[in-house]
Write a protein that binds this DNA or RNA. Sequence first.
DNA 1: CTGTTAGCGCATTCAG
DNA 2: CTGAATGCGCTAACAG
Lengths: 335, 335
Amino acid sequence: MTRPANPRIQDVARRAGVATGTVSNVLNNPHKVAESTRVRVEQAIDELGFVRNNAARTLVSGRSDTVGMVVIDLGNSLFVDIARGAEAAAAAAGFHLWIANADLDHPKQETYVGRFEEARVAGVILAPVDGPLDALRAARRRRLPAILVNAPDSHPDLCCVMVDEEQGGFLAAQHVLDQGARRLVYLAAHLGLSAIARRRRGIERAVAAAGADLEIVRAKDLSIVSGQESGRRILSESAVDAVICPSDPLAIGVIQAAAGLGLSVPDDLLVIGYDDNHFAAESRVPVSTVSQPGREMGRTAMGLLLEELRDPDHVHRTVVTQPELIIRQSTTPLA
Amino acid sequence: MTRPANPRIQDVARRAGVATGTVSNVLNNPHKVAESTRVRVEQAIDELGFVRNNAARTLVSGRSDTVGMVVIDLGNSLFVDIARGAEAAAAAAGFHLWIANADLDHPKQETYVGRFEEARVAGVILAPVDGPLDALRAARRRRLPAILVNAPDSHPDLCCVMVDEEQGGFLAAQHVLDQGARRLVYLAAHLGLSAIARRRRGIERAVAAAGADLEIVRAKDLSIVSGQESGRRILSESAVDAVICPSDPLAIGVIQAAAGLGLSVPDDLLVIGYDDNHFAAESRVPVSTVSQPGREMGRTAMGLLLEELRDPDHVHRTVVTQPELIIRQSTTPLA
DNA sequence: CTGTTAGCGCATTCAG
DNA sequence: CTGAATGCGCTAACAG
């Protein structure tokens, strides 16, 4: 086998006895080519092991048919789900998705946005780290199509996909109120995080409407250990009916703290988490939670991007997706 | 601002009053350019918002400075760690990493390998789905540098990074034997999976050396629920000192089943998991486990790839990384 | 359908 | 350092 390492379209054409334009058509506009010649060309492609050069394709057309996604953190399953949704929608439209992991590092995010722009991807989907979006803004000035997913704020000059965080907080609070809770605690780690602050507003709305009590307690972070510590503090200080947590591990920690104090969840205390991590369903006391529609968010983001690719001057919009209440044992004493 | 959407290197050159070759040098060989002109060129780049076109660069040089990684499943944190390690090593060498998620779908994996080849990436790192590696083999015939990570088998014509699965099994078994266990159970879900079968060999080796007893029990899958079911079955049928599980959720399920039967872990029963998922440390009974060195695997894979880029004819080798025993409460009655 | 060609943006080379 | 020229592999447009 002494064939060239990288045969070109011309080599294929020669071997198949056709013009280069015909090979290009077989690749890109098969319907324009007669069945018989198409078969002959495809055979030549196989025999030579021809792989088309996307660098050249992209250079000619100005844009590739790949979409770049920069993700804040692949360690968080929400963003993996978003990527899955985006990928499915991309594949359905003949695009492919390449992912770059910013790993919670803002400079890295900026670098990757720049790299995707250099690669002349068709567009970019960004699930951003907190911080300025300089690279994205600069790229957009050069007309790079881009969508923001799960960003702290919406942007009028950009399409965005967000989650209704306030509604998530409301759902959680309303649920425990419906179960009879009157003295609620919101275990708010990082009130600086806009998502956690927004959920708080939904919680306050539900609590106010029900005429119940709400106390805001700061947790150190979103971990199980932090839930254990905060749980011990809360539960030993005053009487509480329900603890609303902004993460599932935090909720699990609170449940453990309750057990340590001889309190039973859900009989003596209701606890609800957030995110629906896959272990929430299968912990010792299955944890009620609020689920974010990651796949749908990804699908929607890719849909918006495809719209923008079709019509670069389309009117930007922000799609707000709805979280979903998942009821499990930790908030259902009667079950 | 009526500047062109995509200024080219010539535009930059004109604005800076230099030759195009000089701009190219500023970008690629800064040391060849005098300080003063370099500054002038960089200023022109900023003013024009120039972004170099990697399609053109790649077309000229034949290869881009991006590495493509195709991952079996981003939902599994081991592979996210591998990606992190690979990315760190890539960045240190001036490369960037793009990730494609095969999502346990073999055809998708093949497609993405092909796409990376079409994009003329510098090389590919593949953490493969079970199944034939046709796309990769074909690409390698065209001299695409490629590394395999965590594949079921090593391949002599390719560099590979593997984990010593047998050693992982050995470590787990030896540890519970050291703790005095004599009647061991290996809860082997999917004996078809080569990793699980290999660990079995290590377990058998340790058990044989100690003259202890081993029973192999099939679990349905690697989930908590499966651990609960299998746990109830095992523990009600016969006396067991230790259960070795090929996943942490499975171990958690067994611990829950033990509690349901009035058995205390670790006092009446030792349980050990695998993978060191982040919740294993923080479950009610912290779970001993065997950790796979994901970051190291990724780093090593990228290192091998860089070697192959420097010397395409280097001798291929397989690096076997070592798993690590993580001892927690579920196997330490005295602690 | 064929055969030919221009040009995408860049890196590289060469003489000056 | 300049200035000019070449070609990477492909697409698209042309006349036949």
